[in-house]
Structures are given as structure tokens and as C-alpha cells.
Amino acid sequence: MHPVIPYVAAAGLFGLGCYGVVVRRNAVLLLMAVELMLNAVNLIFVTADANVRAALPHSGQVFALFVIVLATAEIGVGLAIVLQLYRLRQSVAVDEVPLGERNDGPDRNGPARHTAPGPGGAAR
């Protein structure tokens, strides 16, 4: 086995993930690009586990499992935030999210925080 092949594949996947995170506007597509980056890291872990002689056996695979669990937790919280954003603004475009709350007009931000946010929130 030549370990450079999976390493280069992982580097390419990481680059693609970076490109997706910067370019995509839809928050769900952005999370998909984050998944690509996490998988690239996992691929590097597993390849290193196969070709680096470590003091502790199989640490790379154990860390790959840990990263998978972290990614699952991340995707759960991330999708909850995305769905809440959609419920508040009817849009998941990440470049339309106002970051400074003070600078935003009260007609957009004020009612959305303190009243029932749309049909999804009122249905419960």
C-alpha cells in the first residue's frame, strides 16, 4: 500500500469541504460541507493508523470513532439551530443572518424574538 494515495484523497476532500463552507449560502448545504471536512480528518486518522507504528495500537481508529460521534452530536445541534432559524425568518441563507442585534431594526428582530414565531412555533 502506498499511503500517499488516501492522504491525498483526504487533503482533496478537506479542500472541497472548505470551498463548500465558504461558498454555499444554504445552511443545510453548509453542514454537508462540514461533514466532508470531518470525513477527510477521519480518513487521515485511519490511514495513519494503518501505516504509522504507534505506541498504542489502533489509536487512530479509536479517534476516528470519537470524531464520528462528535460529528453526530454537531449535526443534531446544528440542524436544530437551522430549523429554528427557518422558523424565525423563513429562510436558511446564512449571509442574510443579522449578527448585530442592536443594529437591526425593531420591525424585523424585535417581534420575532418575543412573539410566537410563525406557524411552526404556534402549532405546539
Binding site: H2, Y7, A10, A11, G15, L16, C18, V22, A50, N51
Partner: peptide
């Protein structure tokens, strides 16, 4: 950003491992 990260990492890893075989 993506091209820089991808190509930079690929160059680093290729330089580290060359065509070695394990």
C-alpha cells in the same frame, strides 16, 4: 480558501510520504 487548504495539505503530505510503501 478551499484550493489553498487542499493543495497545501496535499503538497505537505506528498512531501512527507513521497512514494513510500508500507
Amino acid at each position: 480558501v478551499g484550493g489553498g487548504a487542499g493543495l497545501g495539505l496535499a503538497a505537505l503530505l506528498i512531501d512527507a510520504y513521497r512514494w513510500s510503501r508500507v
